[in-house]
Amino acid sequence: MSTLSKRVRFKKAMSRHWQLYLLVFFPMLTVFLFHYIPLWGLQIAFRKYQSNKGIWGSQWVGLKYFIQFVNYPNFFQMMWNTLRVSLYSLLTFPFPVILAILLNDMKDNFFKRAAQMITYAPHFISTVVLCSMTLMFLNRESGAFNTILTLLGGKAQDWMARPYLFAPVYVITGLWQNLGWNSIIYLAAMSSLSPELLDAAHVDGANRFHILWYVYIPHLMPTIIVMLLLRMGQLVSVGFEKVFLLQNTLNLDYSTVISTYVYQIGMIKGQYSYSTAIGLFESLLNIILIVSLNTISRKVAETSLW
């Protein structure tokens, strides 16, 4: 009796919402067409791919490449370096939020618009130029950073020679580049705040600080959590180009990450199977991470990605 009504209920609900299903049908179709169909190629990670045999004809080797990766002598160091860079990056997470809050509280004048434009512009600086400028700024002899430091009485150093500074440099330059860009989503969220709520708060005698703390921040919280979750879901994937450009002989202990390793064994060496396996490994870790964190988030903050 109960199962029947469940199915009936389900069918009823589906027919009720048929328009919604229609709206989401085409997005799902395009995703299927352009993303899911090629997914069959993922099995390259489990096969010894040879172009003359094609993907289906290549020999099945199971977990060979995963095991090979985990057994690589520098595996743990690579993982640590990758995680270290990611976790440091997470520390910069609050800054775009803070900037958005500050900007939001300003009157919409020229100064505000100019500030937004300027903070948003670094996002267009390419990674190559960013790293070039960074290395120049940190140059022991002619870098602007050291010049200012000596003016303030400090001693000029070769900062890039210090391995443990690799992650901070990576992260701070990332913050510079993305601060304004990342604050946009929070500005948008705040702008959608119901005006009635603000009026009510004013009537209740709240000053600006109260409004910020009791109105804006709760409104922003779900967005912040979702952005944080999405960020955590990329934790194990640190991009290749920037690390590679900031790497030098003396900081290799800290700057060898998974993506630079994949680049070394990459396309010219023709080890697609191995590099696909490593990519899959990264994704798996990311999925595990995001599932666990999302569960916590659902329990604690009632916000979930699904």
Partner: peptide
């Protein structure tokens, strides 16, 4: 389920050759 349908695309892709 639909959420997961989209979410998976963020983590796995077919790779250069199959695509």
């Amino acid at each position: 389920s639909i959420m997961w349908y989209f979410l998976i695309t963020m983590y796995v892709g077919g790779g250069l050759i199959p695509t």
